[in-house]
Design a binder for these strands. Structure first.
Length: 532
RNA sequence: GGCCCCAUAGUCUAGAGGCCUAGGACGCCGGACCCUCAUUCCGGAAACAGCGGUUCGAAUCCGCUUGGGGCUACCA
């Protein structure tokens, strides 16, 4: 673990590149490529840097995943940094939620606020000293200047320009202030620090996914670096942090592409080397707009609550913007790590598709060992009011119903009858299979016949049904469906014999007799549309 | 408005000038199997946004148009 201020002397670690802040040179930030790996190559370092303003969002999860896979593939390090400079936007518990979300997907960070690392601290709120130093350097060198304009003045200016049909930019008025004058006013007036952006020339972002993108400096206004209280604004903080943390590749969402030239300008003013950039396509909602709450689940937590397995979600996210060279879709994170390459990242925004996610989840439900699925289903079982002691082992129930379930929620729903007798019956099913006058009597006959079935397994049950059908002179299906209805309350479900085998003789017979009695006494059975 | 990015079926994508009468996956439709549903297996409909170039040849290169998205905060 590094001390809070590792810059006295050499700030580096065995991994290689680092910034050095030499007090002898007025605390200037220097980029030093201190050492590479054994072959002299710079070690890859990537980061995921969320702002703790909520839970882990699906887009953020995909960004984190791609960073993680890139590090995995390159043998690099994955860093977690919290961008919490704007205190007003902080959400209580968000930091923990973010970390929980990442961990649940199997994305483990090598360095971060909780585990530490040689380039900490990993919360921007704890890195004030770095920003202060960098800000002072820029001010001293005349690369940044103090701006005393009030929020009202700026708003007025923007409005004026907008009315004239001009882009709403800051005029750069305070840039003309003499340094002595500005320093004097700074004593008793609040101010922000702005970058003195070169009025001409252009800045080229050489993006690993999009190629060279050129921005004219004249289009960029003198943006704010630090607020009146000295806290840094995003475009300033990232640059200082990425450099100090020796980040080699910045892989992030496309919404940051337009910010990149600003960050490069800051880096240039500070004399820092810029990392490589890769801007990932966005993930959009089905209506092509940005994903938000009104589109349903957007956070990793919500997917978990829906009964989506972490593996399935990670696998699905992997496919949003990346494809494997062999065209394989099912892949573990480790397998993806072996293949992951920025060359195969798509440039087009992807629209998120819940159907395919659920399909994929269903596949995982079938592929995974039953014990694993059972474990994942446990929280849902607990929330369902079912008592596992009242029925077969959970793994057994999983085997029985996993094939027709797409989420853990459905899975647990589908196995309910094993642990508690149905409280209500599907009305359509009752109409179709239990409404004939002799329905009750038939169930009674079946119940009686089943009493002598031994051993109680699929084949013997099947034989018993053949016999009863023959005695009654009806087709087998004519008793199979009513029995399924009586036992589960539903018209759909697993094969009847596997189902009864899992249910066991006592409960099967008791339930058949109960329904038979209800039907014959004319009491009727309770019907509910909810029992589907 | 200005600047920037993007454009293969409803959706995710393969495709890096001739291998493309454009391949795969989800979804959809039809069929087979079955005690229902689901699985599985067959089969089907469905796309290179438009227009101009370049080239012997363009989904692939260039330009324009159109459409979508992003940035333009003392948010990140």
């Amino acid at each position: 673990m590094a001390s809070f201020w590792p810059f006295a002397g050499l700030a580096c670690n065995r991994d290689g590149a680092a910034i050095r802040l030499d007090p002898a040179e007025g605390g200037r930030l220097h980029w030093k490529n201190l050492m590479g790996d054994r072959r002299g190559r710079q070690v890859v370092r990537v980061r995921y840097a969320p702002s703790p303003t909520g839970t882990l969002h699906i887009g953020g999860a995909r960004t984190a995943l791609f960073n993680y896979l890139f590090a995995l593939h390159q043998g690099g390090r994955f860093v977690l940094r919290l961008e919490d400079t704007d205190r007003a936007r902080q959400v209580e518990g968000s930091e923990a939620a973010m970390m929980r979300g990442l961990a649940s997907l199997g994305l483990i960070w090598d360095e971060g606020p909780d585990v530490g690392g040689a380039y900490g601290p990993y919360r921007q709120s704890e890195r004030g000293e770095y920003y202060r130093r960098a800000a002072n350097q820029l001010l001293e060198q005349g690369r940044a200047y103090r701006c005393f304009c009030t929020a009202q003045e700026l708003a007025d200016e923007r409005e004026r320009r907008r009315r004239q049909g001009l882009p709403p930019r800051y005029s750069g008025r305070c840039r003309a202030l003499l340094p002595e004058v500005a320093a004097g006013r700074a004593a008793d007036q609040p101010y922000v620090l702005r970058l003195a952006v070169p009025p001409s020339g252009s800045t080229v972002v050489d993006d690993l996914i999009r190629g060279k993108v050129e921005f004219e400096n004249a289009q960029i206004d003198d943006f704010v670096l630090t607020k009146p209280d000295g806290t840094p604004v995003y475009n300033f903080a990232v640059v200082v942090d990425d450099a100090q943390m020796a980040i080699t590749h910045v892989i992030r969402g496309e919404e940051h592409l337009s910010n990149t030239p600003k960050q490069m300008l800051v880096a240039e003013a500070l004399g820092l080397k810029v990392p490589e950039f890769a801007h990932l396509p966005m993930i959009l909602a089905p209506d092509r707009s940005k994903m938000s709450k009104r589109h349903g689940a957007t956070s990793v937590d919500e997917y978990r609550e829906q009964g989506i397995l972490a593996q399935a979600l990670a696998n699905y996210l992997l496919l949003l913007g990346w494809s494997s060279p062999e065209g394989r879709e099912f892949m573990s994170i480790a397998e993806a790590g072996q293949r992951f390459d920025l060359d195969r990242v798509q440039r087009t925004a992807a629209i998120y598709d819940q159907k395919k996610l659920e399909w994929m989840n269903g596949q995982y439900l079938r592929m995974l060992p039953a014990a694993k699925v059972a474990q994942a289903a446990l929280p849902f079982v607990r929330g369902s009011g079912m008592d596992l002691a009242q029925g077969p082992a959970l793994t057994c129930a999983v085997e029985l119903v996993r094939e027709r379930s797409r989420t853990l929620r459905e899975l647990v729903d589908n196995m309910r009858f094993l642990y508690q007798a149905p409280a209500a019956f599907d009305p359509k099913g009752v109409q179709k299979y239990l409404s004939e006058p002799e329905a009750g009597a038939r169930l009674g006959v079946v119940a009686r016949a089943l009493k002598s079935v031994a051993p109680w397994d699929h084949d013997h049950l099947s034989l018993a049904f053949d016999k009863v059908a023959a005695e009654l002179g009806v087709k087998r299906a004519l008793i199979i469906h009513p029995v399924r209805m009586a036992v589960t309350g539903k018209t759909v479900g697993p094969g009847l014999f596997e189902m009864l085998a899992a249910l066991g003789p006592e409960k099967t017979i008791r339930q058949l007799e109960r329904v038979a009695r209800l039907l014959e006494s004319g009491e009727g059975i309770s019907v509910s549309a909810a029992a589907d």
